[in-house]
Design a protein around this nucleic acid. Sequence first.
DNA 1: GATGAATGAGTCTTCATTCAT
DNA 2: GATGAATGAAGACTCATTCAT
Lengths: 191, 191, 191, 191
Amino acid sequence: MKSELIKQSINLFVEKGFSATSIQDIVDTIGVTKGSFYYHFKSKEALLMDIHSHYIDDLLKRQKTILDTEKSHKDKLIAIVELIIVDIEKQGAVGRVYFREIRHLKEENAAVIRQKRADFRNNIEVLLKEGIRANEFRRELQPKIITFAILGITNWSYQWFSVEGSLTVKELSAMYTDFILHGIQSPNASN
Amino acid sequence: MKSELIKQSINLFVEKGFSATSIQDIVDTIGVTKGSFYYHFKSKEALLMDIHSHYIDDLLKRQKTILDTEKSHKDKLIAIVELIIVDIEKQGAVGRVYFREIRHLKEENAAVIRQKRADFRNNIEVLLKEGIRANEFRRELQPKIITFAILGITNWSYQWFSVEGSLTVKELSAMYTDFILHGIQSPNASN
Amino acid sequence: MKSELIKQSINLFVEKGFSATSIQDIVDTIGVTKGSFYYHFKSKEALLMDIHSHYIDDLLKRQKTILDTEKSHKDKLIAIVELIIVDIEKQGAVGRVYFREIRHLKEENAAVIRQKRADFRNNIEVLLKEGIRANEFRRELQPKIITFAILGITNWSYQWFSVEGSLTVKELSAMYTDFILHGIQSPNASN
Amino acid sequence: MKSELIKQSINLFVEKGFSATSIQDIVDTIGVTKGSFYYHFKSKEALLMDIHSHYIDDLLKRQKTILDTEKSHKDKLIAIVELIIVDIEKQGAVGRVYFREIRHLKEENAAVIRQKRADFRNNIEVLLKEGIRANEFRRELQPKIITFAILGITNWSYQWFSVEGSLTVKELSAMYTDFILHGIQSPNASN
DNA sequence: GATGAATGAGTCTTCATTCAT
DNA sequence: GATGAATGAAGACTCATTCAT
């Protein structure tokens, strides 16, 4: 039931936003009472934190697996882009909450999430730096800025990509890795 | 005074979000009363619509100027990317409201804004198509998808870029046009 | 313009009630501003008092004319009933305001109107008394109570009678005087 | 507590009118908070609808009992008049709300109440028609119009009758049935 | 005579949260 | 685990009224 509450609240947060969604709205979708909600969550904000934590923890874990498993910098990067994009299909709604509603965490919790986000981002930045040093990626790139560009491309997809369209997430992911690699690879890198 | 209300409300919307910002919050910042707010705006949503309308109208107008003025497809694209990025400095806050709060427009108004957003996007898509036909951009690109990638890069900047940092918007803009052009230009295109 | 304000406000008061009608509603119907309203009326309540005063003063004046002019008690009564009923056509809206909104006068003004209403009623009561003494009307009637019955019949008409129907006010008035006279006349009275 | 809210709100509606009575006024009389009110009623209008529904449903039920129980048309009519008048004592306040505030129901609800009012009225009209056919009542009467006259007499009583006066509701009811029967009975009807 | 701008008190309503049962 | 009832603070919005121009 706790997970049911989470699931439905995510849908509502996507649709109406965190502030505009009331506890009543949430419990109504699964036909329980507000009292019940407060048995499972200390507060509305605690629910939001729960959503954020699970999402970023899961992302970090899978990113780590990729970094530990894939061989070349290029392959690692491809896998990470794919990780984010392909997730739209399974986790599109959570993702949208994650990107939009961090503002509504209390500072104490927001700091925790921001740190993990920074870790995720930093892992990509380090990857780019190493790829540059290894001559796989262009020397003149600023890793920090390019990391933001890559995240912009992938994260923005959560705003417009529709799983109901004819394009699959796999195809989108392929197009974006191609685009990104063209953008960063050294001319002499073997494609 | 109406413009003062708009200005302050934008700051608050960025900081706390539309829903979490009360009319009281807004009028307090400039020391007038709620009644005054409602003399100038029919509703809170009308204020938000006002912000959205002005922003996108301005953007479309400047985009049109670029398309009418710049010569090559490449130059047009560069100018449009610059338009969005350099704006962060002057209009960063409005932009953030614009990207995040469209949800809180009532359907009727949201439809108007969505259409204009689609126009803006479509102008870029057409530009890419023509650039491909002119052999300036790579043949295998899907204009629609690449348009979203470009907008992802530029729009996402509004979420992280800080005017207080050492990087200027001009520099950021240069890096991103470079990255994007590498990503889309034909190998045989004269750089 | 003052009379225009009165006319339109009466329509609105009938439709939505005094409290639910705002000054804004009133001035909107004739396209002027609120400031204008306050040039002509000291307050919203003053407008309502104006309506009440004119209505009852006019009614009393015409009642007096009848009492001074008509000969028999029966004819006087018939004329008074006709006075109220036939007015529906010309003054139906004012009448409805007059019957429903006295509550919203401030005590001081309400007292004035209540007194005039009592006068109007009392004139009928006296008429009945004299008719009874003159053996025109039944001895066992209680004048005060029968007065209320007569006013109930006539005043209630303002709630349901529609000038658009096929029945004319003249016809209605005839039916009601017939009904009332049957109710009160002595069996031996010459019809 | 819900019924306490209803009871007190009726008193306030009588005194100040529906629009001029605030939720705060209502809850203050029984010392609870506004939140509480909204736990029990969806809206202020819902409370008003509640009052209207109960009142007319009760009236219709008792009218039906009378029509099913009493024998002659005359007795039925007497009982119905009595039903309305005697009620002043127990339900005077509700009645006044019922007669005055239907305007503040939203159209959807008003239609329901209006239909039931029409049913109540129609039952009397049918009764008159049958009484005429049975030669109990005068042939020249228009049942629809006389129905309104009768209701005018009875309903208007709610506006002026005071239970504190020396006249009892039983006495008033007797006077009015006498007056009405004189108004409608055939000369040859056995009294 | 009329307007535009502002006020401040008040309106209905919503909501996160609590707690006894 | 869950409910029903209540709270109190806050929310968007309305309105009668005022006043300088």
